[in-house]
């Protein structure tokens, strides 16, 4: 935690939460714009310059809608299920580091809400608790589509959570820590590669893990081509079918915030986080690099959605259990073996 007073931590946390919610709104704008370009359209243009006020208009519209609760629904669970998804999605931001400790107005300020020694595990845990929001929401709606969507989603998320978890073990072996801050600063060091000094990003030493992580991250956030839980053509809107107004918006917020968190998480673990030219001298540059990496990652998400058709459910499960799981375990064994050789601990 460093030596900063607790109120500064709270301010930093609050600012990060507000930034996250705002950036979530603009992620929807970004997605619509980029998707439109892929489809040879121009996207939203009417509300504000370049449609920049569109997310605000959407929020206002959603607030004015009727908050409908179906007769067959289990009211209490129906009320609270979206909150679980929303809270856990934001909660993951608690361990994402935006830099080290800086001096601001004569105070030392940590550019991260908290530095848990189980940071990476914490993000995985919030992801798994988020499934409760989906499955309780689907179950309590009293609707067939919702129930099917919820169960599919649960099966998908737990399967890909394994891959997500296993793909990180290689990094833990290399760094010997689960604290995201330490993992990130390890990547600020450089290694010599022939005549060049290159950054020690873990995507270089863990390329297979990175690929596995990206696939699992897309599936974990229920995004295309793995958006089976809300497959419109067969399940209407999946677990969200009976939700309306702001409760629907909470699910929506949760999904987009998870996307942003996953982008930040991937950037922190594999792409060096705030590492980049000038980042060690000026901390705003570090934040800029992290944001740029996350935006590139979000672009990749949208690119996938624009390009790939949806998987069939058996293909989805087959991919996770028959292809990715053996690969993930192979990656762990290989990483461990090379680490042993590197340490000179063989025989």
């Amino acid at each position: 935690m460093g030596d900063q007073p607790i109120w500064i931590t709270f301010i930093v946390t609050f600012v990060i939460m507000i930034v996250l919610l705002t950036s979530m709104a603009y992620t929807t704008w970004y997605e619509r714009k980029v998707l439109a370009r892929f489809q040879d359209r121009i996207g939203p243009t009417r509300t504000g310059p370049a449609g920049l006020l569109q997310p605000l208009a959407d929020a206002v519209k959603l607030m004015g809608k009727e908050d409908l609760i179906p007769e067959a629904a289990d009211r209490k669970v129906f009320y609270f299920a979206p909150m679980i998804t929303f809270i856990t999605a934001i909660l993951a931001a608690a361990v994402i580091p935006w830099g080290g400790t800086i001096e601001l107005f004569g105070q030392s300020v940590n550019l991260y809400p908290t530095d848990l020694n189980v940071g990476a595990l914490f993000i995985l845990a919030t992801g798994s608790i988020g499934v409760y929001g989906i499955i309780l929401g689907g179950w309590s709606s009293g609707n067939r589509y919702s129930l099917l969507g919820a169960i599919r989603s649960a099966a998908q998320v737990i399967s890909y959570e394994l891959i997500l978890g296993f793909s990180l073990v290689g990094i833990f072996i290399i760094t010997g820590t689960m604290s995201l801050k330490e993992i990130m600063f390890r990547q600020h060091e450089t290694i010599s590669f022939g005549p060049f000094e290159i950054a020690n990003w873990f995507v270089l030493s863990q390329p297979l893990a990175f690929v596995l992580f990206v696939i699992a991250a897309v599936a974990e956030t229920n995004r295309a081509p793995f958006d089976l839980p809300e497959a419109e053509s067969e399940l209407v809107a999946g677990f969200m079918t009976e939700y309306s107004a702001m409760r629907f918006a909470l699910y929506f917020l949760g999904e987009y915030i998870s996307m942003i968190i996953m982008s930040l998480f991937a950037s922190t673990l594999f792409l060096g986080g705030t590492s980049g030219p000038g980042a060690d001298t000026y901390w705003p540059l570090g934040i800029m690099w992290l944001v740029l990496k996350a935006i590139a990652f979000l672009f990749f998400y949208i690119w996938l959605r624009a390009t790939l058709p949806r998987f069939r459910f058996d293909q989805l499960m087959g991919l996770a259990w028959k292809v990715l799981l053996p690969l993930a375990i192979l990656n762990i064994a290989l990483t461990a073996f090379f680490r042993l050789i590197g340490n000179g601990q063989v025989f």
């Binding site: 609050f14 809270i87 409760r247």
Partner: peptide
């Protein structure tokens, strides 16, 4: 370290509750 996590749970709970309440 965990106080911040508790703070975030409370803050997001209030936020979510307020949003659902407004609608």
């Amino acid at each position: 370290n965990w106080i911040v996590v508790v703070f975030m749970v409370v803050a997001t709970f209030i936020m979510g509750f307020a949003m659902a309440g407004i609608s």
